[in-house]
Design a protein around this nucleic acid. Structure first.
Length: 933
RNA sequence: GCGGAUAUGGCGUAAUUGGUAGCCGCGCUAGACUUAGGAUCUAGUUCUUCACGGAGUGGGGGUUCGAGUCCCCCUAUCCGCACCA
């Protein structure tokens, strides 16, 4: 019988569905294991071959663990809120819920065809009220907690209020708590809440009525529509993720992630140690008597080289310190800087700009007067928005000093007694190696020692202290969008209050339009029913707002990362209507043991989810501080485009790639990769592809038209998108699964290329044929050894996620069994559980054909036997005195005399034994031989 | 500019982690079988040479009996961050 995947695959997929083969229980005697994929956003385009790469890898591991006797949780769901569905809604009026539902159905259909072992019973969708209820609930908890720096964890705001009420804790700004009214108290508490409302500079596009991300603005105009964009302060919800910066850095030590991804996160968080120093303003004006700037520096050792100071254009002190003579110029500059988009500013980094305020500050260590400048090379969002400029040892300060002709003073040199460095005529010396010079009490010290000494000094003088700064910013949590989670927030006297937890979910209301309102409010402003009745505790018509008992609800919605930050916890207990997840469920599964997904989420989802989890840990919900124990980043699948070459002189003539006539062709033209097989063009289908090619003629090489190719991004416009459905229809899911793994290491980025898929398909057919006539004959020792080698290799490879080599190993095994005509049940049967994780359908079918009941996907993982492995000749790795090690191959019947001789004959043996035989050779098969000389 | 990674046949890759470089697959060459196929099987395929042999893991140096693997210096490509004080 032929290998008919079309009959086999649907049959077993149905079998698994009916028997609920992959259902996970929340309690079991077995050890638990949680394998998770990053859930997809169900886009209208459906799955392409890049999506399943990670899913296949995780599925292999999940199946393997199941066969090893683990209770495996392997769920799947959808990140269903998002922009594309909403953009589509604006264009067509089609409700995002409808398109999302349709896309999910299509995704599910595509996923089902690939034979994944997901427990679909646990599916979650972020747009499902039964799910986002808990996203809203978490937001309320964030709102109601603050970060206690001393205990280093989130604590209820109510505790803080109690301490303020009792007078145990003074207010930070020195005011008296008991004298404040409700609004003032709430405003004060807002600076502590982990979810807080604050004025934040954003890119606001009045025409589009929305905030735009930096990458949506070019040259001060919106990418979509080309409307002007202004920098504007807007009240936005934010999450105080910066409170967790240190723990987010520290937690990386506990997780098994690639070093490069950890490094990406460390850089993103950007921890830097340094000092905060106060520079008092020099002025006769009594109003400025106690005014001082706080600066942050990582190079306190260079404080003796400060020749000027720079404030960011947004700095609050600029208005107060600017002298009348400079006022007009400063205001013009600040204004200019303010209206520059983030994009423009970044594009013109090398252009030096700035203006002198007329004011001077006092260097607290030297007592020297230095001018204070304003420039946009100092960023408002980092440190204190003010710096001490040391042009000799900072390249940016150097550029500024050269441009405005400010003095440059060397305070670090390669040697303590070095002459002044002429290199400083052209560039700064930023290196931290060397010695301090011209630096008062630290002169002659090494830079590193001076850093410590200066910090100690400013600390004792009371003009500064040691401190740590982070590059990480708080996460803006508001979106002026419809298709997202509504905030469980209403406003009373402009003060936000949370909806009572029992009233959740606060379901997304229907709106008449998905666009912003005429007054520039988010789409929820169109909702007829979007007001909160405080007394009746329910949502009522917007028209009933009276600000006495009925109040307006928040109109913006949460961003995409809200729903994806805790979904992995919900899978543990997805049907729970009483809680996010039960304590029993979370204390059973604990955390994700293996997480598979793209590295592009390194600075987004993977940071937010860790923050979310740490917060839930602090409030006693999660039981682990880190959510994802091991993480594998699947490499991006790029497209492999094909090209045809059109003659310059004849529009209908196409020249094959390797012909001399190629030189006389135009730029290569993209051709749909579905018309190409192994780079050979199907000329008939090409003519039918588009009317303009109907009359195409071809200059062929050896009767074929060979296309050119190039690796590009996978995109529709390049006709290089590969749809997995086509390949499943042609080769079956098992072949596709195997081939995606065979392509190369999972973690490596690689172009999609179907050129090798035939080989994998051939292997499965060959494997299938092995089982044509299984007999009960005694296998030869060589075949037994082959079996055990295969088991060992496959087991090792799965454990180290080297899935591409598993396929090779199975191919070698199949080739050898075929070549020696082995059909022995004793060898063939154990191979089936072995291949089941990779190609579950064929394994299942053959398992039944060899006379088994039940599912091979639940059958025990085969064990290898060392004794069988060494049956017929094997390799001894050898070590000399535990130091040297090398491999000697010996026949199976070799005795210790042969081992002595082999060691002595080996180059290493000749050198270290000098012709003598070793006294003793200890050898353990497949391990080490110690040679005693 | 800073940080990280990678570099092996015509192509995708492998190498028991310091021990015979090129497994497996694609492609290619030759052949077998054939009811002519996008089927199956066999042999060959790093380069160079008629051959013996020689060279060979981006380039250069080093450690070692022995280096694709470890160390130093370059080069190229990819990714992340980017005026972060």
């Amino acid at each position: 019988m032929d290998y008919n995947f079309n009959a086999i695959e649907p049959k077993w997929q149905q079998f698994w569905r009916e028997k609920q083969t992959y259902r996970a229980e929340n309690c079991s005697d077995k050890p638990h294991f949680y394998v998770l994929d990053m859930f997809p956003y169900p886009s209208g385009a459906g799955l392409h071959v890049g999506h399943p790469l990670g899913y296949i890898a995780s599925d292999i591991y999940a199946r393997y663990k199941r066969q090893c006797g683990f209770n495996v949780l392997h769920p799947m769901g959808y990140d269903a809120y998002g922009l594309p569905a909403e953009q589509y809604a604006i264009q067509t009026g089609q409700h995002p819920a409808v398109t999302t539902e349709r896309n999910i159905a299509r995704y599910r259909e595509q996923l089902d065809k690939l034979g994944f072992s997901f427990d679909w019973d646990r599916e979650v969708r972020t747009c499902d009220p039964r799910y986002y209820r808990w996203t809203q609930w978490t937001f309320i908890q964030l709102f109601n907690h603050y970060y206690d720096e001393r205990r280093n964890q989130a604590r209820p705001v109510s505790e803080l209020v109690a301490r303020l009420d009792s007078g145990e804790e003074p207010m930070r700004d020195g005011r008296e708590w008991s004298t404040l009214n409700e609004a003032e108290k709430q405003r004060y508490l807002m600076d502590f809440r982990l979810a807080y409302l604050a004025d934040i500079p954003v890119n606001w596009c009045p025409e589009l009525g929305t905030v735009l991300a930096n990458d949506e603005v070019v040259g001060g105009l919106s990418v979509r529509g080309g409307h002007p964009v202004e920098r504007k302060l807007m009240r936005q919800w934010s999450l105080r993720i910066t409170a967790y910066a240190q723990r987010l850095v520290d937690g990386l030590e506990q997780v098994d992630w690639s070093e490069s991804l950890k490094e990406i996160q460390r850089n993103w968080i950007g921890r830097s140690e340094g000092a905060a120093v106060w520079f008092p303003v020099v002025s006769d004006d009594p109003a400025l008597k106690d005014v001082r700037f706080e600066i942050f520096t990582t190079r306190p050792d260079t404080i003796f080289g400060v020749t000027f100071m720079v404030l960011c254009p947004e700095h609050e002190l600029i208005g107060r310190i600017t002298t009348p003579a400079q006022r007009a110029e400063v205001e013009a500059y600040v204004n200019w800087a303010k209206n520059r988009s983030e994009r423009e500013r970044q594009a013109e980094v090398k252009k030096v700009s700035g203006v002198f305020t007329g004011a001077y500050a006092l260097n607290p260590l030297t007592g020297e007067r230095v001018p204070v400048w304003v420039s946009d090379y100092v960023l408002a969002g980092y440190g204190t928005g003010a710096i001490m400029a040391v042009p000799a040892h900072d390249s940016r300060d150097f550029a500024f000093a050269r441009h405005f002709d400010l003095p440059v003073r060397q305070v670090v040199a390669q040697a303590p007694d070095a002459a002044e460095d002429t290199a400083l005529w052209t560039e700064s010396m930023d290196s931290k190696s060397g010695y301090c010079v011209n630096s008062g009490f630290v002169t002659g010290m090494k830079v590193k020692d001076a850093m410590r000494a200066v910090i100690d000094k400013i600390d004792s003088m009371g003009v500064g202290h040691r401190t740590v700064n982070y590059r990480l910013r708080d996460a803006i949590f508001s979106r002026q969008r419809y298709w997202g989670e509504p905030f469980p927030i209403y406003y009373k006297d402009n003060i936000p209050y949370t909806i009572p937890e029992e009233c959740l979910p606060l379901t997304l209301p229907e709106v008449s339009e998905f666009k912003p309102t005429a007054t520039g409010e988010p789409p929820l402003g169109h909702a007829a029913c979007w007001a909160w009745d405080e007394a009746r505790r329910c949502v009522v018509e917007t028209s009933k707002i009276d600000n006495k008992t009925v109040f307006p609800l928040e109109l913006s919605t949460m961003p995409g990362f809200a729903g994806s930050s805790g979904y992995y916890l919900r899978y543990m207990d997805p049907h729970n209507d009483e809680a996010y997840f039960s304590p029993q469920a979370v204390s059973y599964w604990k955390q994700v043991d293996l997480y598979v997904g793209g590295a592009e989420h390194g600075t987004g989802h993977l940071i937010y989810a860790r923050f979310w989890n740490k917060f839930l840990y602090d409030i006693g919900m999660a039981v682990m501080d880190e959510p994802f124990r091991k993480l594998i980043n699947q490499g991006m699948i790029q497209g492999r485009s094909n090209f045809v070459y059109r003659s310059k002189t004849d529009n209908n003539l196409f020249v094959s790639k390797n012909l001399p006539g190629r030189a006389e062709t135009t730029v290569p033209i993209h051709v749909d990769i579905n018309l190409v097989d192994n780079d050979v063009l199907d000329v008939e289908r090409f003519r039918r592809w588009r009317p303009e090619f109907a009359d195409a003629r071809f200059e062929l090489e050896e009767g074929r038209y060979v296309c050119g190719w190039e690796v590009e991004k996978m995109s529709k416009s390049m006709f290089n998108v590969q749809n997995p459905d086509d390949l499943v229809a042609r080769y079956g899911a098992d072949t596709l699964r195997l081939y995606e793994m065979f392509l190369g290491p999972v973690e490596q980025a690689k172009p999609w290329d179907t050129n090798g898929i035939e080989g994998v398909f051939r292997f499965l057919k060959k494997f299938w044929r092995l089982y044509d006539a299984v007999d009960d004959s005694q296998p030869s020792p060589a075949m037994v050894k082959l079996l055990h080698q295969t088991i060992k290799k496959v087991t090792d490879d799965i454990e180290r996620f080297s899935f591409n080599t598993i396929v090779s190993t199975m191919m070698i095994c199949t080739n050898e069994l075929t070549a020696s005509g082995c059909h022995s049940r004793a060898v063939l049967e154990p191979l089936l559980p072995l291949i089941a994780p990779l190609a579950p359908h064929i394994a299942e079918e053959l398992w039944h054909q060899t006379g088994h009941d039940g599912s091979v996907c639940l059958a025990a993982w085969p064990r290898y036997d060392d004794a069988q492995l060494v049956e017929s000749g094997f390799t001894y790795p050898v070590s000399f005195n535990g130091k040297m090690r090398f491999t000697i191959e010996l026949p199976a019947d070799a005795g210790s005399d042969d081992a002595f001789a082999a060691v002595a004959a080996h180059p290493a043996g000749q050198k270290y034994l000098a012709g003598a035989t070793p006294k003793k050779v200890i050898f353990v098969p497949k391990k080490i031989i110690n040679v005693v000389i």
